[in-house]
Amino acid sequence: MTISYSAADAVTLGRDVLRHEAAELERAAGDLGEAFAEAVKLILGVKGRLVVSGVGKSGHIGRKLAATFASTGTPAFFVHAAEAAHGDLGMITAEDVVLGISYSGETSELLTIVPTLKREGAKLIAMTGNPESSLARYADVHLNCHVEREACPLNLAPTASTTLTLALGDAVAVACLAAKGFGKEDFARSHPGGALGRRLLIHVRDVMRTGDAMPQVRDDTTVLDAVREITKKHIGMTAVVADDGCVLGIFTEGDLRRLIERVGDIREIVIRDVMTKSPHTIGADELAAAAAKVLEAKHCNQLLVTDAEGRLIGALHMHDLMDAKVI
Rank of each mutant, 00 (worst) to 15 (best):
M1T: 03
I3P: 00
A7F: 09
D9L: 00
T12V: 08
G14F: 06
D16N: 13
V17P: 00
R19V: 12
L25G: 10
E26F: 15
A29H: 12
A37M: 13
V40E: 03
L42C: 13
L42W: 13
G45C: 06
G48H: 11
L50N: 05
V51I: 08
V52H: 05
K57I: 04
S58Y: 07
I61A: 07
G62K: 05
K64W: 05
L65F: 01
A67R: 01
A67C: 04
T72Q: 02
P75N: 04
V79S: 03
M91G: 02
M91H: 06
A94H: 06
S102P: 06
S102N: 01
Y103C: 12
E106D: 13
E109Y: 03
L110Q: 01
L117T: 12
R119Q: 03
E120S: 14
G121R: 12
N130M: 14
S134C: 10
A136T: 13
N144S: 11
C145K: 01
E148L: 15
R149S: 00
P158F: 05
S161R: 04
S161L: 03
L166H: 10
A167N: 04
L168A: 14
G169T: 00
V172P: 07
A173R: 05
V174A: 09
C176I: 11
L177Q: 02
A178V: 08
A179F: 00
A179D: 10
K180I: 07
G181I: 04
E185L: 04
F187H: 05
R189L: 12
S190Q: 13
P192Y: 11
G194L: 09
G197P: 07
L201M: 06
I202V: 12
I202M: 10
H203A: 03
V207K: 03
V207D: 05
P215D: 06
R218E: 13
L224S: 15
D225E: 15
A226T: 04
V227H: 08
R228T: 15
E229G: 02
I230V: 14
I230L: 14
H234P: 06
G236N: 09
A239C: 13
V240A: 08
A242W: 06
C246T: 15
C246Y: 09
G249F: 07
F251K: 11
D255H: 02
L256Q: 13
L259R: 01
L259H: 09
V263N: 11
V263M: 09
V263L: 12
R267W: 13
I269H: 08
I271E: 07
V274Q: 14
M275P: 05
K277T: 15
S278C: 01
H280E: 08
T281P: 02
I282E: 11
G283M: 08
A284K: 05
E286Q: 08
A288Q: 09
A288I: 12
A292D: 04
A292V: 10
K293T: 08
L295F: 09
L303E: 00
V305Y: 02
A308K: 13
A315D: 11
A315N: 05
L316V: 02
D320A: 11
M322K: 02
K325Y: 09
I327W: 12
